[in-house]
Design a protein around this nucleic acid. Structure first.
Lengths: 126, 126
DNA sequence: TGACGTGTTGTACAAATGTACGATAATAAT
DNA sequence: ATTATTATCGTACATTTGTACAACACGTCA
């Protein structure tokens, strides 16, 4: 696989890409419907964002009749890794620990998730 | 304290702001010197970024002789919280757990930090 | 077959971003 | 004082980003 670095994602693009991952495959309309109520963006705007994501290589589309069906075109894990990495670099100089502690502190974790984390770290080896 | 939402930070601004936090107080030159070798930005660019950070309310400056000495003007914890929150929203739809697990998985934690995390989670209550 | 809805394309555009040069002002060295 | 050194300021500018309208295409239903 051609592991070339894709162009950076803008915040809005990131948001849309997340929805494409969530859907697996979906039309512009379906992506719109998945938008959180808080974050209302016009259909046309989502369209543009998807177009740009495609140009950048993050999604592809296939024409299904009239509509376009979009689907991921890049390894999600890889994109996440890079995006998180960049974020940690900028805000914490590359050290992930402060972020982890911050998240652990400020996130309202339900008992279930907390248990998962406890277990995860209990058995994690150096 | 006037808890008003400051304008969003751009990636480059975030990076510079981190250095101001790191320094406590510092001139443009000192900020430049703290830039990681990878991320070389011209003096003039750092200057502009600091100017914008000041306009947005993230830093202040006091003239010390010829040079300007910049220092933080916003609560770091608060800024971090908001920045991280936005990031989690965009990339994970607001759920911090996937990010925590991702970090735990992909970060090379030395034994010391791992111990800290183990302890942290062991005694964390829901 | 012609009007209707739905979706896509092209295009636009102001604001934000990243980056930096040239002019000017203040300092320090000679 | 005159010059060399620095730092700031104003300004600039190509891109990118966020947002979206108008025009055009393709099936669909009457």
């Amino acid at each position: 696989m051609s592991r070339k670095r894709l162009p950076a994602l803008s915040p809005a693009e990131t948001e849309i890409l997340r929805l494409v991952w969530l859907l697996g495959r979906g039309t512009v309309q379906q992506v719109c419907d998945k938008l959180p109520p808080r974050r209302r963006i016009a259909y046309a705007t989502v369209q543009t964002l998807l177009r740009r994501l495609e140009k950048k290589g993050y999604v592809r589309h296939e024409s299904q009749g009239k509509a376009h069906v979009f689907s991921p075109a890049a390894e999600r894990e890889e994109v996440i890794r890079r995006t998180v990495g960049d974020f940690v670099d900028r805000l914490f100089g590359g050290d992930p620990l402060p972020l982890m502690l911050h998240l652990a502190d400020h996130s309202k974790l339900d008992a279930d998730n907390l248990k998962r984390l406890k277990k995860f770290f209990a058995k994690k080896k150096p």
